[in-house]
Design a protein around this nucleic acid. Structure first.
Lengths: 361, 361
DNA sequence: ATGAAAGCGCTAACAA
DNA sequence: TTGTTAGCGCTTTCAT
């Protein structure tokens, strides 16, 4: 057993606090006077051991500060306990921070399920949008992916599905995917009901006595944008109020929100705005400032995402808040299902947002 | 060779697009008619192969879509090519998003160096602050750490150093660490010169004609806070201006910034504020709004961090911007040094922030 | 320039 | 209940 020799040395080094290779299963086994397999069982199937053996092994594990080598375990079990998530460059100049908040939640939730989160970058969207995924998948570096950027035409979901790669999407499958395999090959997803959010926001304004409530949203090709818009329409029509002339569809930038709100203010004299994003809502605040009007007094404004910006800007921006902590929990639950033996069926979960009411409304 | 049998099956499955185990080195070797070792060399030491052999192997690799199994490689090379970084819960109600922006940069920079970023959570600060690190270290799950929360009394750095764990700190070692080993055992770090940033901010205001410039910073026990404050003091004294009665040291919250600015406005009538954070600066904006004063017209305000909040709030908050992309580059460079054979000496890099000038000044 | 042998540290089968 | 054997897929000697 050459291992034993190395061993003795290893332990001496430890005592001398010199950097050394960490203890292995064999070290623990030898110290406890059992076989390596027994130590393995002590860790993975403690029920199989006799209580006193377990105690003895435990003691050795603690004494040596043993922790199973991840690489070896991964190799053997064909699992990495890593969840891959692609993260794009930070969007400066906007109020979009949903992904960051989600990452935080995901990391914490994953830990409880025994997973870590591996972040990777796209190679710059210039090239193939699937870059990064492919490599991690083929090298079996991650067990599954969390796909977040479903808001684009995102080919990731389709691509991953085709490869039979385990993944959960944050964002419902809007299009082709559903029918691809006769509605059967659906993947798991978790999403937040955007329409319910804007409906909540609009009703809140209606209850405050507003009648002319304008909408500033994204361009028509955005499914999410149209969804959010429908909540506003629904709430307005529900009270028999017209929406014509009160809506604007623009890009998701401060400047666009600013212009759109200026136009609407001139053309339709709304007393309130519901926006598809906090970014657009901030554009409205810019316009109000330009005109020396005060949000929450002259005109009410509601954003979407409850970003930090909404939380700290005076006088506080009322905003639709996505329950990201819950989303993370559902995502991890779905992931555990996918990775179970046998894998659970794909699930779709829709969560309802809340309204964070602040000074702007 | 049972492997070969599995093989044939493996390839058939591939053709039928049934989920199968990915190809291995052996598969590529067989297809190319060479030994496994040659394939390994083709990947890791292409120079050793004869050009035509290399081409043949390459062709097989491409055809099979082969990518080396990470676990196996990690086990063999005792390296994971993973960088661990602990991420705390998102700080809601503040404008602090430095860490998020940094994570983005780090992920992208790491990729270029062949590393991925593994995110992990503290088990809730209630318990030991070193939680998470220990486990990842002993299980050899990561090659190195990036430690970011140096702003507290952070025991992480000392702890990691004691364990001889490779890590780079974002944040200079403020205290004990330097002298611990006779100044010798210093770890690598990268930091941004906060004092230079506030000095830049203060000078900018002085140049605009302001004389009574107030400071709102953090409590005295914050080294970073005192450092940033010193930039303000320096710039003021440089022009022979007094600072007494113009400073306030509070907690890093909107409410504190709001109160502090209200008091200062009453007691010292400053015409401008320099703040230790965007959060505090937003507090000032709240006070201005309360008093129907306009930032950038009646009173100038400058924050620190160039958060999204600063970028989108009307009329734009002038703010000191940390060059996080550069920080990430330096961190990764230091990391590569640490992980090289032989490891390079620990380095300290200080970067200079810039001033993002907006409507508030 | 290429191949053969060994082993990284672990766990799944099976044997005792 | 515990131990033995084998091998996950790769790379590092060392031969050839």
């Amino acid at each position: 057993m050459p291992r034993n020799d190395e061993h003795a040395i290893g332990r001496v080094q430890t005592r001398a606090t010199v950097p050394t290779t960490p203890p292995t299963l064999a070290d623990v086994a030898e110290r406890a006077g059992v076989s390596r397999q027994t130590v393995s069982n002590a860790i993975n199937n403690p029920d199989l051991l006799r209580p006193d053996t377990l105690t003895r092994v435990q003691e050795s594990i603690d004494a040596l500060g043993y922790s199973p080598n991840r690489a070896a375990r991964n190799l053997r079990t064909r699992a990495s306990h890593l969840i891959g998530m692609r993260i794009g460059p930070a969007q400066e100049g906007t109020a979009n921070a949903t992904m960051d908040r989600f990452v935080h939640s995901l990391v914490e939730t994953s830990r409880e399920a025994g997973y870590h989160v591996l972040l990777f970058a796209g190679t710059g969207s210039a090239t193939d949008p699937v870059a990064g995924y492919d490599d991690l998948l083929r090298s079996t570096a991650v067990d599954a992916f969390v796909v977040t950027d479903t808001y684009l035409g995102n080919p990731q979901a389709a691509w991953l599905q085709e490869r039979r790669a385990p993944f959960v999407a944050f964002g419902r499958p809007w299009d082709s995917l559903q029918s691809a395999d006769g509605g059967q090959a659906r993947h798991s997803w978790v999403d937040v009901d955007g329409a319910a959010g804007t409906e909540l926001a609009t009703r809140h304004l209606l209850d405050k006595g507003h009648h002319r409530i304008a909408w500033i949203g994204w361009r028509k090709d955005s499914r999410i944008g149209e969804d959010r818009r429908s909540g506003w329409t629904r709430a307005m029509h529900e009270r028999g109020l017209p929406t014509t002339g009160l809506a604007s569809r623009v890009e998701d930038t401060i400047a666009s929100g600013r212009e759109a709100s200026a136009h609407l203010l001139d053309s339709a004299e709304p007393s309130a705005f519901v926006c598809a994003s906090d970014t657009l809502a901030m554009g409205v605040l810019h316009t109000l400032r330009d005109r020396r009007m005060r949000a929450g007094e002259h005109v009410a404004v509601i954003g979407f995402d409850d970003s930090q910006v909404a939380q700290v800007v005076p006088p506080g921006l009322t905003s639709v808040r996505q329950p990201l902590e819950q989303v993370a929990v559902e995502v991890v639950t779905a992931l555990e299902g996918l990775l179970a033996h046998p894998p659970a069926a794909a699930t779709g979960v829709m969560l309802t947002p809340t309204l964070a009411v602040r000074g702007s409304s």
